[in-house]
Amino acid sequence: MNKKDIFITSAFKENSVWKQILGICSSLAVTNLMLNSLIMGLGVIFTLIFSNLTISAIRSYTPRSVRMMAQVLIIASYVIIVDIFLRANLPDISKQLGPYVGLIITNCIIMGRAEAFAAKNNPMDSVIDGLGTGIGYTLVLLCISAVRELFGFGSLFGWQVLGSWWLKWSVMVMAPSAFFLLAIMIWLINDHYYKVKKG
């Protein structure tokens, strides 16, 4: 598989959220504001790229019996770096994201890519796979948060788009709306995908 195919497959064809239904917890939790989703997405992209790179680089030396332990250690270290970076440079966003930054460690997407791709492929391909997977995940987060922020706050990335006449939908700010929107998104995309496949 060439590098472009690796990227397209990991970001779209095998998108971790809508195809593999992974990383759902954070997709639901941090999508009430677009800025939070973007920062969360960037954190996941950073973690995926570097954990894939490291795991791939040491794959031939990693004993099978401790490989998962090593992967968790590597992933956790990069997540803590993201957490410290946010606390030092973007403290307000760090506070809003709360425990979810730390919980990137348990995001199945990262462990999934480490085990399914990085542990078997060369570092360059693993970096591209990490980048693709991360971008795919971030796109889902941004799509859901765009709808939630627009209807819930009347704004996009904090910029007021709808005027004061707009009656804010408080349900969009609350967690249940993320369930509905994510489910609708998965339904529409997969429906389209299978139609294309059948056709």
């Binding site: 040491i58 030396y61 990693t62 004993p63 401790v66 332990m69 090593a70 250690l73 590597i74 270290s77 803590i80 770096i81 410290i84 970076f85 606390r87 030092a88 440079n89 403290p91």
Partner: peptide, 25 residues
């Protein structure tokens, strides 16, 4: 030994990174 070395390396990286960001926090 592998886990020990890996742990020392990553704990070292984290400690250094935290030291560098401590002031801001």
């Amino acid at each position: 030994v592998f886990m020990l070395i890996l742990t020392v390396i990553f704990v070292g990286i984290l400690a250094a990174f935290y030291r560098a960001s401590e002031k801001g926090i």
